[in-house]
Structure formats: C-alpha cells, structure tokens
Nucleic acid binder design. Structure first.
Lengths: 347, 347
DNA sequence: ATGAAAGCGCTAACAG
DNA sequence: CTGTTAGCGCTTTCAT
C-alpha cells in the first residue's frame, strides 16, 4: 500500500473546494465569485480569481447542472450529417443556440429508427432542455416523444397531423410554383423524379406537382418516376426511363440525390441544359449554383426555418402550453439558366 | 399559498428514490437492477422493473456521471458542418463511438479561433473523456490544449511538430503522386490552384507538388494560383488567370471549393474535360463522381482516419502516456475520366 | 455581507 | 446477497 496517497487521483481536476482552500474562503463564496453574484474587485474576489487561475480550475458542468437541475443543452437528432441541407440546418441552429447561451448536441440516426429511438432516449437521460428531431424515413419517434415531458420540435419531415410542434416548408406550394413556371415557359413533356412512396415530405411534393398539373389548362404529359434514395439507383432508373420513353423537355427532381443523378445522366446523354432540356431540383446544393449552366433549385430558407424552430422550442421550454402547431415556411425558387424556356430554345 | 404542494415540481422526472419507494426497496437496490449488477428474474427484480416502467423512469445521466466521475463523451470541434469531408468524418467517428458505448458531441468553430477556444473550454467543463479537434485556419487551440489534462487528438489539419497526437493524411505524397500521374499522361502545362499561404495542410500539398516538379526530368510549366477559400473568389481568380495566360492542359485544385469553381469555369469556357483539359481536385465530393465526365480526386480515406484517430484517443483515455505521435495515412487517387492523357487527346 | 450546511440523483463501499 | 450510507462537485438557502 502506498504511503498516504494523495487524496485525489492524479488525473482529476481541482474542485471548487481546492480553490476555496487556496484562497482561504468557503466554497460558497467561490461559487458566488465565479457566477458573478459578488463583486470581484476587492481582496477576496481577487484572491479567488487568482486561485482559479493558478489551479486551472474549470467549473464542473455536470455538477453545476445537477444542482440547478437545468441543462441549457438542446438535443438534435438528424438522419445524417452528409446531406448538405441537414448540415446547414445544424450550423444555423448552432448559431441560434450560441446567442441564447444554449448548446446543441447533434447526433445522427443514420436513417435507422432503432438508432433514432436510442438517441432520443439518451438525450432524455441527459435531461436536455429540449430536442429537435428530423425524423428518419420510417421513424417511430413520434410515439416516444408524445409521452415525454421534454419539449420536442420536429423539423423538415413533419409527421401528418401530429400532436407535436413541427417546422418545415410548404412543399406542395413550392412544387406547384415550379411546375407553373415550367408550363409558362412552354414545357409540355415533363419527367418528375421522386424518391418513393410513404415519405411524407415527398408525398407533399408530389401532391403539389399533381395539383399544378390538374389546374393547368393546356394538355401536358407528366411522367412520375420513383428513383430510390441512392444516387446510383436514381441514375439507373433515369437511364431506363430515357431508353424507353420519348425525350421529355424538362426534368424535375424532388430529392437532391436524384438531381445529381439526373444532371450527370443528361450530360452523358449529350443534352445541353437550358437548351435541349430543362432541369430543376428540390433543394439547393453548392454544385448546382456553380456548374455551367447553373441548375435551378427550390431553395429551403434554412436560416428562417432555424429561427422559427428555435423560437418555438424556446417558448415550450419556457412553459408555453398552447396547442402544438405545424409551421410551414415558403420556399424560394432559384430560377437558374437550366430552366430556359422552350421559346428561347426555338429562337 | 397552495395547500401541501406536491414535493416535486410538476415538470421534473421521477428519481431513483421514487422508483425505490414504489417497488418497496432501497435506492441502491434499484441502481443495482438498472445497471445489471443483480439478477432481474425474481420478485424484487421484477417489482423494480415494473416500477421503472410505470413511472417512466430514466436514469439521470448527469448525476450518474458525476458520481462515477467519468463521462464517456467525446468532444469534437470542427470548423464547420458544411464541408462534406468534415461531415463524413463526424459520421464515421460517431459510428466508432457507438460501438464503444461512447457518445460524440460535435460542435463547430466556424473557422473562428475565439469560438474554437470557447468550445474547447466548454467541453473541458463537461469533463469529456477526450476531444478531437480539427483546428480552425488560424487556430490557437494548440496552446489551450497542451496545458489540459484531457486527452486531445488533432485531425486533418495537423499542427507542425506539435507535442500532441495528430492524425491526418500524407498530403505531400498524395499530391506528388497526382503530379507524376499528370506528367506520365503527357501534360506539360499545369495550373495548380491552392488556397493561400499559411495553412499547414495546403502548404504540405504545395510542397508535394513542388517536389514532384523538381524531380521530373522533362521541362514542364507549372503555375501556382492562390484562390482564397470561397467558391466565388476562386472562380474570379481562375477567370483572371485564363484571361491572361496560355491555356494549361491540366488544372489541379488543392482545395475542394477551388475544384468546384474550376469545374464551372472550364464548362463555361467551353473546354471539354478529359479531352481539351484535365482536371483533378484534392478531396472527393459526391458531385465529382457523378458529373460527366467524372472529375478525378485525391480521396482521403475517411473511415481509416476515423479508425486510427479513435484508437489513438481511446488509448490516451485509458492512460497511454507514450510520446505524442503524428500519424499520416495515405490517400487514394481516383483517376477518373477528367484525367485523360494528352496522347489520347491527340489520337 | 459572509460561511456553514443541506442536498441535487446517483453509485460504490460497506455493514448486515 | 441485500440494504444502508456516504459523498461526487456544485449551488443556495439560512443562520450568523
């Protein structure tokens, strides 16, 4: 047995008591100094600060939170970090958090409902102040969440008529807008590539497209092609479509992976965008704005989504008990050159 | 004053004592059941589990961690979430974490050294088990970190001869490889677009390029163009270059934003990739593989980086006190069609 | 004004 | 093997 071992194992950090002892005051007093509940510019205040610096003391956040029983952490569960839309949303929410002195803890579910459930559970274990969830494609998050006392706000993929707050965009409206844009530009044979059935978000987008088609008075041909969510799958589906169908004069992709697949395929097949063929995609990406000609996009106003969602969650945290609401924000259409009209093509 | 108020405010969750009372056992016993230190299939075990379910009890992670004085959280500070390389690294590290029952808390510094310092400080406050840092461009993280007792591992942008573990790729080697590839393919007028001076990573890449040029025996013309880190800036710089210089037969971008800028510009100027002009970039992106022709890339083996870095950090957490090391991993060259040789061009 | 003391929810050492 | 108990580091009354 080692002689009178040091009372603290070597790896551990100084506690508030070490500081108190060194400064010759009580722990409570140190706490007051640290939390600004006591003026600092007197002998005692200075002694404490000095001790803090010398020992390299940092407050233990877990102990502090435990005692105050509050956490100022917001959990965020997203399907993945690789989707630039999600990534940007994380970034924007983080910015909001910072200004309110909250902290975002972001984790990903990898589109797996099991993982998602575990993550949510885990966050509740941390007694986070609130949670944002972008549900995975076949999410069961809704069930877990409605039972919980922790405030939840759903983002982007908002469950149908759920008894929980949700913030997303007006998918149908945005798609209808784009379709009308295509009609006005004279396009009459349009291919709409969508992800697949059963995803609320994409269903809304399809609805918007269908409504616009129904309302349009001229005869138009619109084909609907499910592409799956991988780029390769989408490419194969599109390739097959082009092999067996007359050439459309516009392609509208309702999901970002499909947009990239379509872009590559159209290039390969030798179509010139904005001339032989129009292309537009739901969701913007850096590459879309910077290739030539740039590819038109329906842009989700991420900053605005983050702002509204943040306000909603904060209100809940602060005790707002009004009925849950679903907030829809309008998208912007970036009508880039890939959309050139048929008239222009003829002329 | 309300009559005998409930002893716990309504918002708060049941504690281990509520469970114990309900099950008619002691808190310690409940703890044992929950943590599997006691068999569950007897009257007592069952009673506890039942009470847990009825009350919707979830262990308070902060209290638990405080008591065990350990956290199983790994902090991760990255410059931003929007860079796909960083995003993928986060994802891969998360996967590693999951298998080891750790948890990743990812935050971004937005390339701002102030923010970065705050984030690191904050993580230390959480008594995280360890921290991964991808330093911001003008990072002062190194100073903060060497003082700390928390294990740190630097990723990607590894500080020069630092007394701290670092895991990254062999930048110079990879760039030299690509340059030799270009030489062999007959390219003799090459434009190298780099970010700017003073960034360790890019400096290494430039060194690799210069070495390859120096070793090459044929006469070649290599121009070096600093582009800044925005896509727009890079585009403008490249545009100016093309206006005032003879057309190169290959463009090599050392930074991903420059690659996208170059791609768009070359398209706009009517060059056909893999025919009139070769293009390659450091770092792969989804769009590079899927446009036509696909754009060659130096691919950082992210999975491997995550694996090695994870092992390093875990070793430190478990008390490894060997000298800090810098681990370099080799990149892979995806020699896609944008690289077609000059011979092919002629033929 | 200041410091002593109670206790947040949990776990681990120890007593029964 | 089970239950009691002390205490992790901190904040916040409450006496002084």
């Amino acid at each position: 047995m080692p002689e009178k071992a040091a009372k603290r194992q070597p790896g551990s950090r100084p506690s508030i008591r070490d500081v108190a002892r060194k400064a010759g005051v009580s722990p409570g007093c140190v706490s007051n100094v640290i939390n600004g509940r006591r003026k600092l510019d007197d002998p005692i205040g200075r002694a404490v600060l000095e001790a803090v610096n010398e020992l390299g003391y940092r407050r233990n956040t877990m102990a502090s939170n435990l005692r105050r029983s509050q956490s100022r952490i917001i959990g965020l569960v997203i399907p993945n970090f690789e989707n630039p839309f999600f990534a940007e949303l994380v970034a924007k929410l983080e910015q909001r958090a910072e200004t309110t002195n909250y902290r975002i803890v972001a984790t990903s579910s990898r589109e797996d409902p099991e993982t998602e459930a575990r993550e949510i559970d885990e966050l509740v274990g941390w007694r986070v102040a609130g949670v944002f969830v972008i549900p995975s494609l076949s999410s069961r998050a809704l069930n877990l969440v409605s039972a919980s006392e922790t405030p939840f706000v759903f983002l982007d993929r908002i469950p149908q008529n759920a008894a929980i707050d949700g913030v997303g965009v007006n998918n149908a409206e945005a798609c209808a807008l784009l379709m009308r844009h295509l009609f006005e530009a004279g396009h009459s044979r349009i291919l709409v590539a969508y992800l697949g059935d059963g995803i609320a978000n994409v269903a809304e987008r399809l609805d918007g497209v269908r409504n616009a088609v129904a309302e349009h008075e001229q005869p138009v041909t619109v084909d609907y092609l499910p592409t799956g969510d991988s780029i390769e799958g989408a490419r194969a589906a599109l390739d097959a479509y082009f092999d067996h169908n007359p050439k459309p004069d516009a392609v509208f992709c309702l999901f970002n992976t499909a947009t990239l697949a379509a872009y590559g395929l159209l290039q390969q097949r030798g179509f010139v965008l904005g001339k032989d063929m129009a292309l537009a995609g739901f969701d913007d990406s850096a590459w879309m704005a910077h290739v030539h000609p740039p590819v038109a996009a329906i842009v989700q106003p991420i900053e605005e989504i983050a702002k509204v969602a943040w306000e909603r969650l904060l209100a809940r945290i602060e005790g707002d008990t009004s009925a849950p609401e679903t907030i829809r924000i309008n998208c912007r259409l970036e009508a880039r050159e890939s959309l050139a009209s048929v008239e222009t093509q003829a002329g």
